[in-house]
Design a protein around this nucleic acid. Structure first.
Lengths: 211, 211
DNA sequence: TAGATTGTTAATCGATTAACAATC
DNA sequence: TAGATTGTTAATCGATTAACAATC
């Protein structure tokens, strides 16, 4: 760690992309990579990559570049990907089950350890080995277990209340899939996912091409 | 339409958010909204909102603000949300099925009219009324039907090849969920979705708070 | 050593915010 | 009319790119 002034979110959001490429290169057995190569593979400029990485430290070596595995580990450390993060998910309708399944397959370091819903037909069912409980039991569950991240996939109108319950239960972050922006509660970071926004952005460009 | 210089993507990406709020206000029966109110609800500054909207035209009225329904329609027009867009989805494993279900519920204007996979156990099954076909039949299907958007949810190593097939079949846009960045082919716009990146961004902030 | 590539400063570019005249 | 709020220009801010000395 080199500087103590806050690093911008724009930089942080690029780190997972760098990480993806580094994992790829590592799997291919590559030992070194230059900022130029990394630029080609990520679509950013070499200059920007060096600028970004130097916010955190001088990970490279003049005349050589970066050690693939070393840089991968550095970025994992920066992002905090050094331990598992335990999730609960609230709302196991279609969307919730989809997220649970996706997460089960693609994010093994983010185990979902609790599932909650209000629907009596859903409560008691088992998804990826976890039994869905009544959302009324959520506060007690959060009290008992140390939960890192709450995933919200309930209907829009219930989302804020769920966020409040999660905040009261001292989760450390909220990953929201309900189609509204959940505001920060108690300074707990929130990541609002709006898949449809990306689709609408795509449509804009499709329509531009049609002119 | 007022100016003909290209509007930046940063602006376009904010439009779906404005639209969400306007739909909400419209549903609540609100007739008018000021840039200040819109700013409070979206988290952007009033100044930025006026600046953004004026890239496309003067939709407001001094001393009054914006007409909710009018502005909603304007933004829908800008984004191109004036007709349905027909999708095909390739890859109906866990992730693909999740996306298909999500899309079926939340994006009714984006019907999935074709589903394709390589797995004999998946081919022939029906999801939301659509029967999964062998991916070998995809080129013929694209030839026969006018498809707007191809959704990619195949394993990483197959994604680029699928993208090429979609491009050859003259889709107008690609919505990619495979965990790599599909590059543009033939200038066809691509929206790469990386859910895990958002989760990693969240983890960074969680870990910062723990300092 | 010579060549390559970083780390870092300075220059540029673009996006956001502030300010206010226009006007409903 | 007076008050409110836009549209728009100018100022500021921040992020990206360029350049190059340092150095492996």
């Amino acid at each position: 760690m080199k500087s103590n002034k806050k690093v911008s979110n724009a930089v942080i959001r690029r780190l997972p992309r760098y990480l993806r490429i580094l994992e790829e290169l590592d799997k291919q057995g590559e030992q070194r990579v230059s900022s130029r190569e990394l630029g080609e593979k990520t679509g950013f400029t070499a200059s920007q990559i060096r600028q970004d990485l130097n916010q955190f430290g001088g990970f490279g070596q003049q005349g050589y570049g970066y050690n693939v595995q070393g840089l991968k580990v550095e970025i994992e450390n920066i992002l905090g990907l050094v331990r598992d993060y335990r999730l609960v998910i609230i709302g196991l309708g279609r969307l919730g089950r989809a997220i649970a399944n996706f997460n089960f397959v693609y994010n093994p370091s983010f185990p979902i350890v609790g599932m909650f819903d209000t629907n009596p037909e859903v409560i008691g069912t088992t998804i990826n080995g976890v039994t869905v409980a009544d959302v009324k039991t959520l506060p007690a569950f959060l009290e008992e277990h140390r939960i890192d991240i709450g995933v919200i996939s309930v209907p829009k109108d219930d989302a804020e209340q769920v966020a409040d319950t999660l905040a009261a239960g001292k989760v450390k972050g909220i990953w929201n899939f309900a189609p509204l922006d959940v505001p920060e509660v108690d300074g707990i970071p929130v990541e609002n996912v709006h898949l449809s926004d990306g689709l609408q952005f795509l449509v804009y460009h499709i329509q531009q091409d049609e002119r």
